[in-house]
């Protein structure tokens, strides 16, 4: 079926089987490798994307569900001319990245959290990101990174 949606700020139209998983559409059909798949069953959060600003698991979404939506993947987070979004920069500086396979999903989940709650406590950060699994870091530096990102965005007077 023909599907039209907005992807990282640009309109996209493609002809896809309606039951194709969104993670496959992004990675295989559109070449956006930043969205990772790690469990395929919605348990780990690695494939998180933003759909109308809300974190969604792209391994559990079908292509037809994209119709008319506004989709952001990790590739679309930073504004043009900006190397990294302040949240991404905070992940780098805080040492929140090790193997990096969970990172795109973590960053997008953080984007949503900070858009709703610009100065979350550490407990609120842990709760909000608890659907995203990281096997490398022990999470502490990711919590540090989200706090740092919140500071950066507040300083800039921006929201996520």
């Amino acid at each position: 079926m023909k599907i039209s949606f907005t992807l990282n700020g640009k309109p996209v139209s493609c002809d896809l089987p309606s039951n194709r998983r969104v993670v496959d559409v992004l990675r295989e059909d559109l070449g956006l490798m930043g969205t990772k798949e790690a469990c395929g069953t919605g348990e780990c959060g690695a494939c998180t994307i933003l759909v109308d600003g809300i974190p969604r698991l792209s391994c559990l979404m079908l292509a037809a569900q994209l119709e008319g939506r506004d989709v952001t993947t990790i590739e679309g987070l930073s504004k043009s001319g900006e190397t990294l979004h302040p949240i991404q920069q905070a992940f780098v500086e805080a040492g929140a990245v090790q193997c990096g396979f969970c990172t795109p999903g973590m960053v997008l989940a953080t984007t949503h959290l900070l858009s709703e709650n610009p100065r979350p406590t550490r407990e609120e950060i842990r709760e909000a990101l608890s659907g995203n699994i990281c096997r490398c870091t022990g999470y502490q530096k990711i919590v540090d990174a989200v706090e740092l990102a919140a500071e950066k965005l507040t300083e800039k007077g921006e929201t996520a």
């Binding site: 930073s78 990294l84 991404q88 780098v92 040492g95 990245v97 990096g100």
Partner: peptide, 10 residues
């Protein structure tokens, strides 16, 4: 880490 920027950007 030098590898972090590329990883965090996907």
């Amino acid at each position: 880490r030098a590898d972090a920027p590329a990883k965090v950007a996907g």
